[in-house]
Design a protein around this nucleic acid. Structure first.
Lengths: 223, 223
DNA sequence: TTAATGCTTCGGTGAGGGCCGAACTGTGTG
DNA sequence: CACACAGTTCGGCCCTCACCGAAGCATTAA
């Protein structure tokens, strides 16, 4: 019964608290330096360096050298999917990190999942697009319909063209236990939200804070 | 940045090769005894017992005492979701267990994911149901439409009523990197396939082997 | 060049945890 | 009852790995 890929190596990488903290920090989508990640994990730089080497070799993170800085980011969407799924079971087991801080509701409301929108609003967005017939699940996966294409064109959303990443992709949401939209389109929509000034990132967290007008505009546009 | 649930404990549970083997074995959906799982993991019974205690305490497996036997099963769908997601990234990293055996194509074709159908055919089933308007993603999650209800009634599928598990649920597929149908309905459909004699399990693996007539009937009914 | 900064590598230490032999609990069987 | 069998608990061994001090590179600044 030794069929299928070897899970344990990958899981073990996430299984160390320090590395897990780093990965969670990278869920914010921003690339972080080794030093920042060391602080995030609460360890010395040397230790972090070792962790990051392992994560890189395990294909969990990507390294980008810029001068004397090394920037790290999650390798791809799949890694984010795993992390969110893990948060799902961990949350259900009541293994909350310390105590659900005052920020918890905000996190559940709207947060960044690697590079796309998650939480309440992320799920609502996904549902609305599906419901309106903008997205459709077919034999080739999640697909943007002609109607959907027209809609995002009308809104002036610019879709990132580059990368082999799929255009649309479903991603499990740990707080809602439902799907939200990932892939190049998911990323582009979040960028659009930022560009329109509807919301901004709360520094040092994954929270996406919508302002009043922005929320209204977002709801009008998509929901 | 210590927001969200604590991933690392859960991941560490999967991070041990022995425990990972046990969990993968349980992905077959069958409840297995401690002894069988020990063999699966390649360790002595005492060691396995320790592992299983940890897995149970971590909420990954459920224990069912029957006489002097202890039967173990995955705690719920969420655990299966995590395992499949992990297989996804592990597979992409080329961390195949030893060497992709001759069974690998069969696994990708149709296999059991905890208690529902995954692989090529599982994804195709999900797509077809969505495409036909039997399933719909709406504000309350994946939903079985009236049309869908009529269809499964016509086919004589009996839906398991018990349990708090949702009726429909999307589950990520590691080989296809797409969604297939989980939840009570997913389980019921797989049971239906067995009952009709369309397919049977290959012993000691997760493979679901369709026979010629069964495959044809399955395709006619759903695809 | 020299100095400062960011990161990696090396080496030694220590704790955690997987492992198994042996003993114990509990449940069926003759 | 004795006996076999499934599983748990205990104790000790050993290996892995996270950790950090110190030294070594590489890049930028002065």
């Amino acid at each position: 019964m030794k069929d299928g890929p070897d899970i344990s190596r990958t899981a073990a990488l996430i299984g160390d608290p320090g590395r897990a903290n780093m990965l969670v920090a990278l869920m914010s989508g921003k690339a972080l330096t080794a030093g920042e990640l060391a602080a995030e994990a609460g360890v010395q730089l040397q230790t972090a360096s070792g962790h990051l080497a392992k994560l890189e070799q395990g294909g969990m993170v990507r390294r980008d050298r810029q001068g004397r800085h090394h920037y790290f980011a999650l390798a791809d969407d799949d890694v984010a999917v795993v992390l969110e799924a893990l948060m799902g079971v961990a949350a259900k087991r009541g293994q909350l990190r310390t105590r659900t801080g005052p920020r918890d509701p905000e996190l559940r409301r709207a947060r960044v999942c690697y590079n796309h929108l998650a939480g309440d609003l992320g799920v609502a967005l996904f549902d609305a697009l599906t419901w309106d017939g903008c997205l459709q699940e077919d034999l080739d996966g999640l697909r943007l319909t002609a109607k959907g294409q027209a809609k995002i064109d009308a809104l002036g959303v610019v879709v990132h063209a580059k990368g082999r990443a799929p255009l649309c992709r479903a991603c499990q949401d740990w707080s809602e236990r439902r799907s939200h939209l990932a892939g190049r389109l998911g990323r582009s929509l979040l960028d659009h939200i930022y560009e329109k000034g509807w919301a901004s990132r709360v520094d040092g967290t994954r929270i996406v804070a919508f302002n009043k007008a922005g929320l209204k505009a977002f709801e009008e546009a998509f929901l």
